[in-house]
């Protein structure tokens, strides 16, 4: 897959079909990749595809001027399609290099599984359904399916739906929706005051670094409502009340645009379980309007559109 990507990327740059290639490069932190954005052929050698490509790169096309060749996984491709639906990205301006994705490794889960610090790990290899984790003088085998992100379990579209070049053969979806929604279901089982208390605690940790917003491809407002100061909706500093209201409104703004890529939760430095909010909305939007984010680039975005028969049993 990696070689094909390099080959295609080189070709795209050489033939002038794109100005930049946006892909994954080797990171400087163990087992992390980092976005590699380049217009130079010599940098192409640095492109990688491995089970650690967590970032959702579809944030970049709206930001970088020019034509882009962009590497996407299944979930990322849906973010990208959603941006096309919203007219934020022109389909003709991008060449989509699709990566059929078997899942991305959640380092936190991996650390738990091996019971050792990530700094002690020297090497990780994927062999079939297993990950071989090599540490100083010892070796551990973990099941790949045990250490991938929760979002990956329920991923119905692991192979990008929209692409120009597919870099491998299609991957069949995991049908473990239950596992993916486990946290949400457990959460719904507790009573309302407890649920509220949970979020109160979560958002007491928030330091308002806005990483959740800034890494989110669906957060494309030119000026975010928290940055508006006349009128000031939300204070610029964080009390848990304001943090929570900020995140709830953000959740509603990206509802129907969220492809459950999980970047908000992964990026959060203080570990707020943001995906529980976003994924819940994915379920609701599907249940209420039978709409899935980014599966059809010609469909109107769900909230710019309506049906006369939309549910309204909650309205008196």
């Amino acid at each position: 897959m990696e070689n094909k990507l390099k080959e295609e990327a080189r070709k795209l740059l050489k033939e002038g079909k794109v100005d930049y290639i946006v892909g994954y490069g080797k990171g400087t932190v163990k087992f992390r990749t980092s976005p590699l954005i380049t217009n130079k052929e010599e940098d192409i050698e640095g492109l990688v595809i491995n089970p650690f490509i967590a970032n959702n790169l579809s944030r970049y096309p709206a930001e970088i001027k020019g034509k882009l060749g962009i590497v996407v996984k299944g979930c990322d491709s849906r973010s990208l399609v959603s941006l096309i639906q919203d007219n934020k990205v022109k389909r003709d301006d991008i060449v989509i290099l699709g990566v059929p994705c078997e899942g991305v490794v959640d380092i936190k889960k991996l650390v738990e599984q091996i019971g050792a610090d990530i700094d002690q790990v020297k090497e990780i290899d994927k062999e079939g359904d297993n990950l071989i984790v090599k540490m100083d003088g010892s070796k551990k085998t973990v099941l790949f399916g045990d250490v991938i992100f929760d979002k990956c379990f329920g991923c119905e579209y692991p192979t990008p739906l929209e692409y120009d070049i597919l870099l491998g053969s299609e991957v069949s979806p995991r049908v473990e929706l239950e596992k993916s929604l486990k946290k949400i279901k457990e959460f719904e089982d507790i009573n309302a005051p407890e649920r509220w208390r949970y979020w109160k605690e979560q958002f007491s940790k928030c330091i308002r670094c806005y990483a959740c917003r800034n890494v989110c491809p669906a957060c494309f407002c030119e000026r975010c409502f928290v940055d508006v100061n006349i009128p000031q909706w939300i204070t610029t500093y964080g009390s848990w009340q304001d943090n929570l209201v900020f995140q709830l409104i953000r959740t509603l703004h990206v509802a129907g645009r969220c492809s459950d890529c999980g970047e908000c939760e992964r990026s959060c430095p203080v570990g707020i379980t943001l995906r529980s909010l976003q994924r819940k909305m994915v379920e609701e939007v599907k249940g209420l309007f039978n709409y899935e984010t980014g599966v059809d680039k010609d469909a109107p975005p769900v909230f710019t559109h309506y049906e006369a028969t939309d549910p309204e049993e909650f309205i008196k």
């Binding site: 806005y210 917003r213 800034n214 500093y237 430095p269």
Partner: peptide, 25 residues
């Protein structure tokens, strides 16, 4: 800065970053 997401993580987790804002509420 091309790949930077312009969030504030690096400044907020930095032990020496000290910029602040003052607001009257």
């Amino acid at each position: 800065s091309k790949k930077c997401m312009a969030c504030g993580i690096c400044t907020y987790v930095c032990p020496t970053c000290h910029c602040f804002d003052i607001n009257d509420e």
